[in-house]
Structure formats: C-alpha cells, structure tokens
Design a protein around this nucleic acid. Structure first.
Lengths: 113, 113
DNA sequence: AAAATAGTTATCCATCTGGATAACTATTTT
DNA sequence: AAAATAGTTATCCAGATGGATAACTATTTT
C-alpha cells in the first residue's frame, strides 16, 4: 500500500503549525465555523482562512457552506495515514533492533566459549 | 505532559519532505554517512546537508564526526513524541464518538418507547 | 608529497509561508 | 430597507525553504 508522497507532504506540513494543530484539537470536539475557529487565535480573519485552506487541501479537514456560515469538520481517516507512516517505521525499527539483539547475544556467546 | 509546541512544529516540518522521510527510512536500517544518505537523492551535496540540518535541529536525528566522516543515526524517542500527539488526538476523538454513540442509543430508546 | 575523498561554507535565487489591511459579497436580523 | 454578521478576494510584505554553484578545509590513500 504505497502512500502518495505529496499527500503526506501536505499533511505533515499542515500539522507543522501550532495554530493549525489547535484548530484540529477544536474540531476534535465537534464541527465549528470559521469564526469559532478564529476566536481563540489572535490573528486576522483572512489569515485564519489561509490556515483553514492549508488544512483542507491537506485532506485533514473538510467544510461545507450553509447560508453565510461555513462549517468545518475533521476527516479522521486522513490522520490515520499519518499515523500509519509512523507506526510502519517504528515497527521496522523494532525488527532491526531485534536482529541487533540476536547478533549481540550470538557475539557474547562466541566470546564466552 | 505538555508538549513543547515549537519542537513539534520542527518535527512535523522535518517530516513534510519526501527526501527527508527517505533519509529517515534509510537511517531506520542503521547509521549512515552524509554521502550514503545523499547517494539515492539526485541533488547536490550542500542541499543534502541542509536537509540533514533540518532533521538534526528537529531532534529526529543526531550525528557525530570521526575523521572526515560524519555519521548520522536516528533518535527513536523523538519520533515517539510525534506519535504521542497523534494517538492522544485519536483517543480523544474516540471518546467523543463513544459519547455520541451513547446519545444516539438513548435517543433511539426514547423514540422506541 | 600529491591526489582523492568527505564534508563545509558562502552566496545566490525563485518560490512558498504566515502574517497584515482594504475593500468586497452574501446572508441574516432588526 | 438598513444594519449587522460571516466569510471572501486581492494585495502586499518580510522571512523561511529547497534548490543550485563555487570555492574551501580537513582527512585519508597512493
């Protein structure tokens, strides 16, 4: 299952900013409008919108507009892709270190005998 | 256990580039020199070094120089911080959805009776 | 000692990024 | 219909980022 590198680029990039991670935290507690997401964020609205665009093009988040209100919500599956990247590496590293353990065990056995 | 936001910024940022993720993959199979890390990477050496600097200041990677060779290796604990951020969110989201499940179950019980 | 190897430093450049303000449209609310 | 609300678009700006080349130092190797 080959990941699309570009997509991962965009997701990690999207997560590399505290304000955007804050928005994700907020959305973890349920959908929210632009204004709600902006409220704790000491920055101009258009700036907030850029962050939201980054999140949306990364696929981590999704929005629809009803009336004059645009509502954002999380796409949990998307974060799963990032998680998968990490856990795959960790798993592989552990295998590597298992092999190292075996090697070290063998080596000490050899020197002992 | 409050994460340092800046540190997470740098780690996610470091991971937001395919070449750098490639280097991490390589280092997952054991330590490597600058030249070894550069070899599969169709870019000039100084460019490679910038990527390595990004990785090193993010804390994901570490290097020492012996003779004329600088050797890099992974800092697995660092990736654990990133992993923690993700799993914490996932856990919290699941709690939210558990509550939603309960709410829906209650609601359907009420309409049923 | 000369040549080869491994990495480093200094610049340069185009593009991206995170911030801002000003001016605007579209939808409620009063 | 006027005012308020919610978001959008267009620009601008400083600084970061990902790439390059040229010129350099330090360590082996021959």
């Amino acid at each position: 299952m080959l990941e699309d590198g570009q997509a991962l680029d965009r997701m990690f990039q999207a997560l590399s900013d505290q304000s955007r991670r804050g928005m994700i935290d907020r959305l973890g507690r349920g959908p929210a409008s632009v204004t709600e997401l902006a409220q704790p964020l000491d920055m101009a609205l258009p700036t907030v919108m850029k962050h939201l665009q980054v999140l949306e093009t990364s696929g981590l988040v999704l929005s629809e507009k009803a009336g004059r209100v645009r509502t954002f919500h999380l796409r949990k599956e998307a974060l799963a892709a990032v998680e998968r990247w990490i856990t795959e590496r960790k798993a592989s590293w552990n295998r590597t270190f298992d092999r190292l353990d075996i090697f070290l065990a063998d080596a000490s056995t050899e020197t002992d005998e």
